[in-house]
Design a protein around this nucleic acid. Structure first.
Lengths: 226, 226
DNA sequence: ACCTGAACACCGTTCAAGT
DNA sequence: ACCTGAACACCGTTCAAGT
């Protein structure tokens, strides 16, 4: 039986698919040139014939995920009918979010990129088209893009991402904290919500995402006038 | 003349101060155990007597910057008088921003942390106190903290951080882009604003920050009722 | 208690060589 | 054109040894 590398020559797409798989299963830190190449049954230096280097690999990882967002939005919009600008934006951001939930490493990696993935332009173009059609000036639409932040890609940036169960504390520590941080402890006590697993980080649940999204959408609707 | 390491023994604070200085001048990628230790005239392994490892060093870097935010806010609030909840939040976020502008590497590094810096609790506690005093329920205050995102630390998360001058394009590329992305090119054409240097990334100017901030503050004021 | 220096197991990347 | 294997310059971290 011939080896896999014999029948299937390496390609940028095969390479990135392997890298995404590694990131999904072992975490993004496991995405090294040597590890990815080993998973493909090839030498590390072979990757350089399809990508200029490590940074390009990470850029490609982000681009792959953003392309997945673009595709998912296409599917939803083709089958879902036409809506007003507000509902269209809302649906897009929530659709993007379903993709990010499949790749929880993506938000952090996206934050570290210094170049814009080509696929992201398509998303911004579509958002602008929807807003301009809905009566936005370019100036207001531009500001909206900034205000939405990372929502067009389906996530809100969490400040910190504590590992679950990382917040174990001794009794005395808790008592000291309750004294120094009374409002924080009161809030946590009054708001213990079960982490149901469908999150991208601490408290980033569906409800938080939708709350902020609607707050922003309402704000722009109001600025557009009645 | 005795060497500096002889008269000044190493300490966690001296170590972190050196690391911050390196990050400010050479970028956060230059913050390696070996490089930091060399700057202190000491062996790499000496750092392990004051920090458990590299991750703790980066955590300490973030904590140092957040402490700087806390101090700056104290200074401003002591000399600035008491305001309502809305103006207090606004002043704090804008104050925090002045600190982040001094450490442009901090936002990205903060995004990669998996533990919350101790100094951040003080910020959240103070924000909660202000909001509860202003009539917020703990539930609404909690949602507000999430909606503000990274603003309490003085920045809005930029999706991507293109290096300035990284967007050089050939004539033909520009023409092709104008055809494929008509709204995006129209927006850029109608909105060329000079990058005046006081930014934390692409388009993240003072105006964008304040616009989003006020949009959110208005939204919460409205949800609080008249 | 604090610091050293050699060593180990990893990186990304170069280079010259193979086919 | 594509892939290899050795080598280089860096990492973070271990360990045993110094003072």
């Amino acid at each position: 039986m011939p080896t896999r590398s014999r029948r299937e020559p390496l390609s940028r797409d095969r390479l990135l698919a392997a890298a995404v798989k590694i990131a999904d299963t072992e975490g993004v830190a496991a995405v090294t040139m040597r590890h990815v190449s080993a998973a493909l049954g090839v030498e590390a230096m072979s990757l350089y014939h399809h990508l200029p280097g490590k940074e390009a690999l990470l850029d490609g990882l982000v681009d792959t995920v953003v392309m997945e967002v673009v595709e998912q939005i296409s599917i939803v919009e083709e089958s879902g009918g036409t809506l007003g600008w507000q509902a269209t934006l809302r649906r897009r951001f929530l659709t993007a979010r379903t993709v990010m939930l499949r790749h929880p490493w993506a938000p952090v990696l996206i934050g570290t990129r210094t170049s814009i993935p080509p696929s992201a332009y398509a998303i911004y173009e579509a958002l602008l088209a929807t807003m301009v059609e809905g009566g936005f000036s370019y100036e207001l639409a531009h500001r909206a893009l900034h205000s939405f932040g990372s929502m067009p890609l389906g996530f809100v940036q969490e400040l910190f991402n504590p590992a679950p169960g990382d917040d174990d504390m001794a009794e005395e520590e808790l008592a000291a904290m309750a004294e120094m941080l009374p409002h924080l402890t009161a809030m946590v006590a009054s708001e213990i919500h079960t982490n149901d697993g469908d999150t991208l980080g601490w408290c980033d649940s569906q409800n938080e995402f939708e709350f902020t999204l609607d707050l922003l959408l309402d704000g722009f609707a109001r600025r557009l006038g009645p």
